[in-house]
Design a protein around this nucleic acid. Structure first.
Lengths: 191, 191
DNA sequence: CAAATACCTTGCGCTATGGCAAGCGTTTAG
DNA sequence: CTAAACGCTTGCCATAGCGCAAGGTATTTG
């Protein structure tokens, strides 16, 4: 499937498009290839774009005062990704967004995106869905990590995202789970 | 300050009210007193209301499959509180909402609230603020708990919510922090 | 292709936190 | 007002997970 069809298919799963919407939408989304480890956003920058991932994966993370990377989210193909907090507020981001693999994506500026949100009902629905999902996802993460052992957290991750261990460096999985790479390595040995 | 003024003051801090808005708003919010430990929502029920707390406090929590209570949020005076996930989706809640203290609040039905969101700009702003805050709060919680020790989590809580230890049972604080009451008790002894 | 780099694993000892039991103080309810 | 219930503390022991160091493997880069 070509990139444009992939995006349109995603949108149409949420809401049908009216005559002419397709062109209006595709006009604003810019295709972009990013290399492995390339940054799309760095701490301190204002996030003024939204991304739709076609192929590959990104990670969103912050760096703690002690210099430790804390991963908040892995974004794979057919997901929108951005730093919502910075996007909404217009304030500088606390996060980095970085490609984990060689990645292909569509990028749209904040103003173009918000324009489409207002003018095209299907995109309005996409945005609402993003906000709701973002909230629900973070709630789930809180509830599933609360007082859980490393093994329980790992099992939870593997359940809703099987195969992730083979795709993403263990180091990053550990950071996402809030455990050390050592502990993760030992757990994997017992699976 | 009387309850009506308290609510109106809260709203006006976000956005000014137009002529006649006050009456329209107050008409829809019902004053309600709840006893300590009284439930406002139970797991399995659909959350079709929004609450504004005038006095007292609520807790939102879920019960894990192992029967453990996991507290997500404490809501104090001058805060809106609801189960956003259930409210938005219309699906049954995974949470309980319970009064921690004797509490006075305003309750508004989902439909009345969404009506005001559409008809009164200031309320629209209130809702947007709720959504953004909800998301930002949960992000903060994730980042501040990730790989942190019990003491670090406690210090973080005390910083943004000093005095909470004197007001809320330790048991609940422990549940919120994801540690055992025993550990919390020991930490308090060292503060 | 080779050297350098990054990543993963594993062993060892240590510490923080959990689990449990007992005792105390305070709140609740008849 | 009293008994029961509940919540908090504290001691003791068990253990999960961390920190560090060393060695092996894979990946990157020139």
């Amino acid at each position: 499937m070509n990139p444009s069809d992939q995006l349109i298919a995603y949108i149409q799963k949420l809401n049908p498009l009216a005559e002419g919407d397709r062109e209006q939408i595709l006009e604003k989304f810019k295709f972009r290839k990013v290399k492995k480890n390339e940054f799309l956003l760095r701490e301190g920058e204002v996030c003024n774009f939204n991304l739709f991932i076609l192929k590959g994966s990104l990670r969103m993370y912050m760096v703690s005062p002690q210099g430790q990377e804390l991963i908040r989210y892995f974004a794979f193909e057919n997901k929108f990704g951005t730093d919502l907090t910075s996007l909404i507020s217009g304030s500088p981001s606390n996060e980095y967004i970085q490609a984990i693999e060689k990645t292909e994506l569509f990028q749209i500026s904040k103003s173009d995106f918000l324009g489409l949100v207002d003018s095209i009902p299907a995109i309005n629905r996409v945005y609402r869905n993003m906000l709701e999902q973002a909230y629900v996802t973070s709630q789930k993460r809180i509830y599933n990590f609360q007082g859980k052992t490393a093994l329980e957290k790992l099992n939870w991750l593997l359940e809703y995202s099987p195969g992730i261990l083979a795709r993403i460096p263990s180091k990053m999985i550990a950071s996402y789970l809030g455990i050390t790479p050592f502990t993760l390595s030992r757990l994997k040995a017992e699976l």
